[in-house]
Deep mutational scan, measured.
Amino acid sequence: MTTFKLIINGKTLKGEITIEAVDAAEAEKIFKQYANDNGIDGEWTYDDATKTFTVTE
């Protein structure tokens, strides 16, 4: 398992979430479901060097 981080730069929600996932594809699926569940819709980026996803509304 690898640790992945999501940085949320939303209009109403900001913060960071860290999860353990098998790979970046699994982490992205989990993070996008979390964002969808919380009404966050924005532009996604991923930095493989730091294993960090960012979503900006």
Rank of each mutant, 00 (worst) to 15 (best):
K5T: 07
Y46A: 01
G15C: 04
T54C: 02
A24T: 11
N9L: 15
A21E: 02
K11V: 06
K32S: 11
D48A: 12
T2S: 07
I19Y: 12
G39V: 10
K29R: 10
E26F: 10
M1C: 04
I17E: 07
T52F: 15
A24M: 07
K11G: 07
I7T: 05
I17R: 04
K51T: 09
M1A: 06
A49Y: 02
E43K: 09
D37W: 15
W44G: 00
I30L: 08
K51Y: 09
T52C: 01
F31T: 03
T45W: 10
E16H: 13
K29Q: 07
A27E: 00
N36H: 15
D47C: 05
E20I: 09
Y34A: 04
N38T: 08
T52Y: 09
N9S: 10
I8N: 03
E26K: 10
Q33M: 14
A49T: 08
N38K: 12
A49Q: 11
T3K: 04
E16K: 04
A25T: 08
I19H: 04
N36W: 07
N38G: 04
V55C: 01
F31K: 00
D47P: 01
T52K: 07
N38C: 02
I40Q: 08
L6G: 03
E28Q: 08
E26P: 05
A24G: 09
T54D: 05
K11E: 06
A21G: 02
T54Q: 04
I17V: 11
G15P: 15
K51Q: 09
D41H: 15
D41V: 14
K29G: 04
I19D: 07
G15S: 12
A27T: 02
K29N: 05
T3C: 02
K29C: 02
T54H: 15
E16C: 03
F31E: 00
W44E: 00
A25G: 08
E57M: 11
A49D: 13
E16V: 06
W44V: 13
A21K: 08
L13N: 08
D41Y: 12
F4N: 00
E28S: 09
T50K: 10
E57A: 04
T18Q: 08
I19K: 12
A35K: 05
G10A: 13
F4A: 01
F53K: 00
V55W: 05
E28P: 00
T50G: 09
A27P: 01
T54F: 01
A35I: 04
W44R: 01
T45Y: 03
D41M: 05
Q33K: 13
D23N: 14
D37H: 09
T54N: 05
E26H: 13
I40W: 11
K51R: 07
G15H: 10
D48W: 05
A25F: 13
F4L: 01
Q33R: 10
F53I: 01
K14C: 04
I7P: 00
T45N: 10
K32W: 09
G39T: 12
I7W: 15
M1Y: 15
I8L: 10
L6N: 01
T12P: 15
I19Q: 05
E43D: 08
L13H: 10
M1P: 15
E43S: 07
I30N: 04
F31Q: 00
G39A: 08
E20Y: 04
G15W: 09
G42S: 04
F31C: 01
D37M: 14
D23M: 03
A25K: 15
K29D: 08
G15T: 08
T3E: 09
G42Y: 03
M1E: 08
F4P: 00
I17G: 04
E43M: 10
D23Y: 12
T12C: 06
F4G: 00
E16D: 03
K29V: 13
Y34T: 06
K29E: 02
N36M: 14
T52V: 08
D37R: 12
D48S: 13
A27K: 00
K11M: 05
F53W: 14
E57P: 09
D47Y: 10
G10M: 06
F31D: 00
D23E: 11
I19P: 00
E43A: 11
E28Y: 12
A27W: 00
T12F: 07
L13K: 06
K32N: 05
K5H: 12
A21C: 03
E20A: 07
G10Y: 13
T45P: 00
K51F: 08
K5M: 03
T54A: 10
T56E: 12
I7S: 05
L13P: 02
E16F: 03
T52P: 00
I17S: 08
Y46Q: 05
A25H: 11
F31W: 13
A24R: 12
K51S: 09
F53Q: 00
G39K: 07
N9C: 03
K51E: 02
F4K: 00
Q33T: 11
N38Y: 13
V55Y: 09
E57V: 04
T52N: 14
E28V: 14
T2F: 11
I40R: 02
Q33F: 09
V55L: 09
N9P: 03
D37V: 11
A21R: 06
I40N: 12
V22Q: 13
I17W: 02
T45G: 06
T3S: 09
I7C: 02
I7M: 11
F53A: 01
V22H: 07
L13C: 02
K5D: 05
D41G: 11
V22N: 11
E26G: 13
N9G: 10
T52M: 10
N36T: 11
G15L: 14
A25N: 12
T12G: 09
K29F: 03
K11W: 05
N9E: 06
I40Y: 14
K32G: 03
K5N: 02
E57I: 10
F53R: 00
W44A: 01
A24L: 08
D41I: 10
D37T: 14
T50D: 03
T3I: 13
D37I: 13
D48C: 14
A49R: 03
V55K: 00
T2Y: 13
I19R: 01
G10T: 09
A27D: 00
K5G: 04
A35F: 03
K11L: 08
L6Q: 00
A25V: 12
F53D: 00
T54V: 05
K11Q: 04
L13G: 09
I8P: 01
V22K: 03
I30A: 04
W44L: 08
L13V: 05
A49M: 06
G39N: 11
K32Y: 06
I40P: 02
Q33C: 03
F53T: 02
K5W: 15
E20K: 01
G42L: 03
E43I: 07
T12A: 11
T2M: 12
G39I: 13
G39D: 03
D47E: 02
M1R: 01
E43P: 08
T50E: 05
K14H: 14
I40V: 05
D23A: 10
D47K: 13
E43H: 10
K51P: 01
I40S: 11
A21F: 03
T54M: 14
K11D: 10
G10R: 06
N9Q: 10
D41S: 07
V22L: 06
D47T: 04
T2W: 13
T2N: 15
E43V: 13
T2C: 02
K29M: 11
T3H: 11
G10D: 11
K51A: 13
T54Y: 12
A35N: 07
A24N: 13
N36I: 11
Y34S: 15
Y34N: 04
E20Q: 06
K32I: 04
E43N: 12
I8K: 01
I19S: 04
A35P: 00
A27L: 00
N9I: 10
T2R: 11
G15R: 15
E26M: 13
G15F: 12
V22F: 10
Y34I: 10
N36F: 15
G42I: 11
A49N: 09
D48G: 10
F53H: 03
D48H: 13
T52G: 05
N36S: 06
D37K: 15
D41Q: 09
A25S: 15
T50P: 04
G10C: 02
K32M: 04
E43T: 13
K5C: 02
Y46E: 01
T12V: 13
T56A: 05
G42R: 01
D47A: 11
